[in-house]
Amino acid sequence: MAMDLSISRFWRKKVSLYRLYGSRCKACGKVHYPPKKACPYCGSRDLELIELPKKGKLLSYTTIYAVPEGARLKSPIYFGLIDLGVTKVVAELTDVVDKNSLKEGIEVEAVLRKTQEDRDSGLIYYLLKFRPAMVHR
């Protein structure tokens, strides 16, 4: 269980969570993720949705042992800061077989993964996580 989020919350975010859509500001050209209602840099509301690259470089990472309630079975959780070129994002890192494989500068790629489930017979929720790109394994 993540933060006990509602179905509608996932549904509202589907474009950014599942397809990695960010926003590009037509005034200043900067890209941010997930999309806001105005550009966080210049304040312009003239934004367009763009699909972000699914591959990037790992800038920083952490292995989390102090995980919140409900996720202790999933400990440790890997989390990273990723440079996609047009912008940076943070995301959970997955498929980390050996934590020593996490290094600054390695290539990572987005994959759709489960994040939460409503008990045994309920809904299963997904989102994009990043894994070390195949070439590095």
């Binding site: 993540a2 933060m3 989020l5 996932f10 975010k13 950014s16 969570l17 993720y33 997930p34 920083s60 990472y61 952490t62 989390i64 102090a66 995980v67 919140p68 309630e69 409900g70 996720a71 999933k74 959780i77 989390f79 990273g80 800061l81 943070v90 995301a91 959970e92 994040t115 939460q116 989102l127």
Partner: peptide
């Protein structure tokens, strides 16, 4: 830890189980 995770932007982070120290760790 879960409550303190709310100090950070919930728009993306609340979909992950990252707790209260993840952002400072990346930094």
């Amino acid at each position: 830890y879960k409550q303190l995770q709310m100090l950070y932007d919930s728009d993306l982070r609340s979909f992950y189980n990252i707790g209260f120290a993840a952002d400072a760790a990346l930094l």
